[in-house]
């Protein structure tokens, strides 16, 4: 069972920087107070996780994050029996912890998880707000402050990795995208500790790269990549090297696309 000191460890004390772009905080807060679950959709590196952290801080709720993957089983979320000293003890999983303690449970990249795992959250995300644990025989009502948040990237998933309608329709959905130019430059300048002019150049470069998304770059250049590049530039790494290592090489191995990215860098910088 989570203790208050454990909970304290999960509370975010310093404000995570987040620049609101379209009233998403208001909607999230309203959903939280209405005890609705929220689904965040958007491309990689556009600020979904940072948003959740920011809202957890703002709402003064502990945040428990689970990175979903193919081998995630229901027991990874709910809990399992473990051997401790000479005893067999039940250990709550992160979902159970959140349910009991009233934390925000954030399932990141939910589509990566197996569908028989995802279905565990169904009773928590409708009016029942309960979690059943077969192994202990418990049926735990969710703490009033409990909130379920999931995120996923609808862009590059295959048709196999899509949420079932029965799961999707349990959530209020917020759509994220890369911010408008000035806002993105502000974010990059702040997080990358770089001057605004240089941050604007990075954003301009990213805009050009996003124009050729369907030419083989699965995703365009994310805000996260720009922040990485900004941090390298702020540390004095030469421009071309910083941009190549932080933006070009993570995006693609295709030589012809790298050639085009180099051309764009040459023009913009």
């Amino acid at each position: 069972m989570m203790t208050s000191s454990d909970l304290g460890g999960l509370r975010i004390l310093d404000e995570p920087y987040y620049l609101e772009t379209g009233g998403e905080a208001v909607v999230f807060e309203a959903a939280c107070h209405a005890r609705l679950s929220v689904m965040l959709k958007g491309p990689t590196g556009c600020g979904k996780t940072r948003f959740v952290e920011h809202m957890a801080w703002r709402l003064k709720r502990p945040l428990i994050t689970v990175a979903c993957h193919e081998d995630l089983f229901a027991s990874d979320l709910v809990g399992r029996y473990l051997l401790k000293d000479d005893e067999t003890v039940w250990m709550d999983g992160p979902l159970t912890q959140a349910v009991r303690s009233g934390a925000i449970c954030y399932l990141d990249e939910i589509v990566e998880a197996r569908k028989d795992t995802t279905v565990v959250i169904h009773p928590l995300t409708d009016n029942r707000r309960r979690l059943s644990i077969d192994k202990t025989g418990e049926c735990i009502p969710a703490h009033p402050d409990f909130m379920m948040v999931i995120s996923y990237n609808p862009g590059y998933q295959s048709i196999l990795k899509d949420l079932k309608p029965s799961t999707r329709q349990r959530f209020v959905s917020l759509e994220f995208d890369y911010p408008a130019r000035d806002q993105e430059a502000e974010i990059v300048a702040h997080e990358g500790r770089l001057d605004t002019e240089s941050a604007l150049k990075l954003v301009r470069l990213a805009e050009k790269i996003r124009n050729i998304r369907e030419q083989g770059l699965t995703e365009g250049a994310s805000t996260r990549l720009l922040i990485h590049a900004a941090r390298l530039l702020a540390k004095g790494v030469p421009e071309r090297q910083a941009l190549r290592t932080a933006i070009c090489l993570p995006l693609t191995d295709d030589e012809r696309l790298l050639e085009t990215l180099d051309d764009l860098i040459e023009d913009v910088f």
Binding site: K208, N211, I212, Q215, R256, E259, T260, D263, L264
Partner: peptide, 13 residues
């Protein structure tokens, strides 16, 4: 052509 075409698409969209 190929290289310039990719540049053109990226530059102008």
């Amino acid at each position: 052509r190929d290289r310039l075409q990719r540049y053109l698409q990226a530059r102008t969209g």
